[in-house]
Design a protein around this nucleic acid. Structure first.
Length: 502
RNA sequence: GUCCCCUUCGUCUAGAGGCCUAGGACACUGGGUUUUCAUCCCAGCAACAGGGGUUCGACUCCCCUAGGGGACGCCA
């Protein structure tokens, strides 16, 4: 049997560390066994998927050296490799599934489902579909369809017994069927859900082993059910532990950026980041901590994976990165650093901002320090200003974060217009409004033009600095977050500025 | 709340019943090399969640408890 593995990220937002983590193991395992590693873009969420993110994921994985044998750009015998281009396949198969009794039409409204779930929760039951449309007769279904009634197709789930499946690391796992929801497989927009698309594609693409995050463990019964209805053979499942924040929760960008691009922008070498990722949940037989991708691929074996969630430790990653940097020949060091600092037009972009403010060359680098490296550490005092309070600073930073997160395009004009409008909507003078942003971004009250700086630094670094500034100001409590979120939604509706739909 | 997974130094981990007086790495502390600093070298600190079994013997196997995490969406 040919070993075939895949990574199937969804193109929403910045390329996630977790994607690289999972890709690393899948790729190593496939290549170690002369198999193929596949990239499949899981763009099943029409609302949130965007092509910029699609491209960014590919760029990020390539930067890390995690290239694929088959995928949306390189093609392959099992294409297309983007879900949105495979709709016909899903439609045909879902029809087959309905006809063999593995799935059913559901015409329930969102409101009804909400009520049902709320009631179930109150009674201490597992919130899930109550089977309302399960009893519909063929005539009733036909009538609904003829009226063009909005509908979904759901998975039929046994009401009794338990699902038993194997995880290569944990052995046999048993989940009672009553815990399993009658999952929507085809949404009302005729797109498949992840569960359906992934199951179908894994089968059709002849994926033999799936290394994926532990978060998927509880949806295994759904996938198993789809496989068994169709009479397909299940791939081998290996659930990797979840990368954790220092507080042990699942790695999330709230606390620290999870974007691969953030690490790239912070000056980590791809080799070092990859090496570090490989030590999360895996260890070399000789306990070696610094090793190449090739050595890893050679030595990797699922039995050396651990199951407890590793904390992603920036300090240790930095140490490892230092090991790699120090062994670089000087010319490489110079070349890579130069590209990092001034590549892709960055030199021109920075110098354009600096030149008009320069009298002597020795003025240049101090002005651009926060664009070339980490900004100065900010404290509560950094934000003291006679026209704006601490609370207002937090508010400004929080709302700006929201705004920037949802911007359609990342360029200084759009950023400028968005932020200015935000200032107006919350009733602040632009000059005052911008103050906390200057501090958060540059670490200083006076800096090079803000909007250009934001553009230049990129979304991931900007988000990280904004988050860190909010922390310096004392952070936002859960309660305050809720309040700010509500307020933000109101503001958003007031703004005529184009903000991307969630 | 329900179900599932997990549990060795602060963190990443080694450990497949006697090799364990529990090893390595990061961090931290102290010392040495170095014109400063960093690097580098040496040393130190520091853990088997708790309780029951099984066994001649348990970090390792089983059970319970506790703690942590995840899932419970027309998100992935």
């Amino acid at each position: 049997m040919t070993i075939r593995t895949r990574v199937a990220p969804s193109p929403t937002g910045s390329p996630h560390l977790g994607t690289a983590y999972v890709a690393l193991f899948n790729r190593a395992f496939a290549h170690q066994n002369d198999g193929k590693f596949v990239l499949r873009i899981e763009d099943t969420d029409k609302e949130r998927s965007d092509s910029a993110s699609d491209q960014a994921i590919q760029d990020a994985l390539r930067w890390l050296g995690l290239n694929w044998d088959e995928g949306p750009d390189v093609g392959g015998p099992f294409g297309p490799y983007r879900c949105s281009e495979r709709l016909k396949i899903y439609h045909d198969l879902i029809a087959e599934l309905v006809s063999i009794g593995g799935a059913f039409y559901c015409f329930c409204s969102k409101e009804r489902l909400d009520t049902v779930r709320t009631n179930q929760r109150q009674q201490g039951l597992v919130p899930k579909y109550d089977g309302h449309c399960l009893e519909l007769s063929a005539q009733e279904i036909q009538a609904h369809l003829e009226k063009d009634a909005p509908h979904v197709i759901r998975l039929k789930v046994p009401s009794e017994g338990a699902c038993v499946f194997q995880d290569a690391l944990r052995g046999s796992i048993e989940i009672p069927w009553e815990q399993v929801d009658m999952q929507v497989l085809l949404k009302s927009d005729r797109y498949p859900t992840y569960h359906f698309a992934a199951s179908v594609d894994d089968h059709l693409m002849e994926i033999s082993h799936i290394f994926r995050g532990e978060e998927w463990l509880s949806s295994c019964p759904k996938h198993q059910l789809i496989y068994s209805y169709f009479g397909w053979e299940q791939p081998e499942l290996i659930h990797l532990p979840l990368l954790r924040n220092p507080d042990q929760t699942k790695l999330s960008k709230r606390r620290q950026s999870t974007s691969i691009n953030y690490f790239r922008r912070c000056g980590f070498l791809p080799e070092a980041l990859l090496n570090y990722l490989a030590t999360m949940g895996f260890s070399m037989p000789d306990e070696q901590e610094k090793f190449t991708r090739e050595e890893f691929q050679e030595a990797f074996t699922p039995s050396r994976l651990s199951t407890s969630g590793p904390v992603f430790d920036l300090t240790k990653l930095s140490w490892l990165n230092g090991q790699y940097i120090r062994e670089l020949p000087l010319t490489d060091f110079k070349g890579i650093l130069g590209e990092w600092a001034f590549g892709e037009g960055r030199a021109e972009a920075i110098l354009r901002l600096v030149q008009s403010r320069t009298e002597r060359f020795d003025d240049v680098f101090v002005q651009a320090d926060y664009l070339l490296g980490e900004r100065a550490t900010v404290t509560l005092e950094s934000f003291s200003h006679k026209q704006i309070s601490t609370e207002e600073c937090v508010k400004v930073l929080y709302f700006s974060l929201q705004l920037l997160e949802h911007l359609k395009r990342w360029d200084s004009d759009v950023i400028s217009e968005g932020l200015k409008q935000l200032a107006t909507v919350i009733g602040m003078k632009v000059r005052v409004f911008l103050f906390p942003l200057f501090v958060a971004i540059s670490g200083r009250q006076v800096s090079l033009p803000l909007f250009d700086s934001i553009e230049l630094l990129g979304k991931d670094v900007v988000s990280a600095r904004l988050h860190s500034a909010i922390q310096a100001l004392g952070g936002v409590s859960k309660k305050a977050t809720k309040r700010l979120e509500t307020e933000w939604r109101e503001l958003e509706s007031e703004m005529i500025f184009e903000v991307e739909e969630n």
